[in-house]
Design a binder for these strands. Sequence first.
DNA 1: ACATTAATTGTGT
DNA 2: ACACAATTAATGT
Length: 214
Amino acid sequence: MKASLIEKYHYIFEEKLLKEIEEIGRYKTVDAEVAMIDHGDKIEFMPLVLNGAIKILREDKEGNELLLYYLEVGDTCAMTMTCCIGGKKSNIRAITEQPTELILIPVGKMEDWLVKYKSWRRFVFDNYNVRLEEMLEAVDTLAFHNMEERLYKYLENKAMVLGDGRLNITHYQIANELNSSRVVISRLMKKLSDRGKIRHHRNVVEVLKFLPTA
DNA sequence: ACATTAATTGTGT
DNA sequence: ACACAATTAATGT
C-alpha cells in the first residue's frame, strides 16, 4: 500500500502528511459495481482514489439516476467534503466503475489537516474547482445539447475513464445513467453508428475514436 | 449438437 | 411510451 500511495501522491502531499495518511488511512480494495455510498448515508470517510474509478450519481425521489462525474486516480469527492464539514448526509450515490483501490480518511482528520498542512488545503481546493467545472460542463450539455450529443459525450468520457474504447455495457444501463429510456438510446446508437462514430453489438459499444488504430 | 429460455436490441404505431 | 418481433447469448439435455 505504501508504494501506490507514494507513487500517486508524493507530488501533491508533503512528507509529514504522507506519513499521517499512511498511519491513519484505511487501505481498501473494492470490486467493480459495488455501491460505496448511498443516498442518505452518513459520511464517515473521505476517499483518496489510488487506482480504478468511481462514478458519482444523483438520484431523485422516483429513483431516477443521473451520472454526475467520475472519480479517478488522484481525486477525492467534493460532495464528501461539503457533507463532512456540515455533518450532513449524502446527496449522492457512489458506485465503483472498475475494481478500485483507495484509502479512507476519517472525516475528523480532514479538518485537522486543513489547518495543519498547506498541501492538503491546496489539494482540497483544487479538487473542488475541478469538480465545479465538470459540473458546469455537465449542465451545459444537459441544457443546450440534444440527447445525441449527450450520449456521445457520455461514451467518450466513459471510454476515457476506463482507458478502453471497447465498452461492455447495454443500452438499458446507458439509459439509466443518462436518465433516458432504452428505446431512445437504441435509436441514437443507430444514428451514431451510421455516422461512423461508434460500432455496437450486443453488450458492446466501441467508441472508434478510442480504439487501438485498426 | 440441439432445444429451450432469458436478455438485449430493433421497429412500427 | 408501449408492444411485439428479431437476434443473440446462456444453459441444460
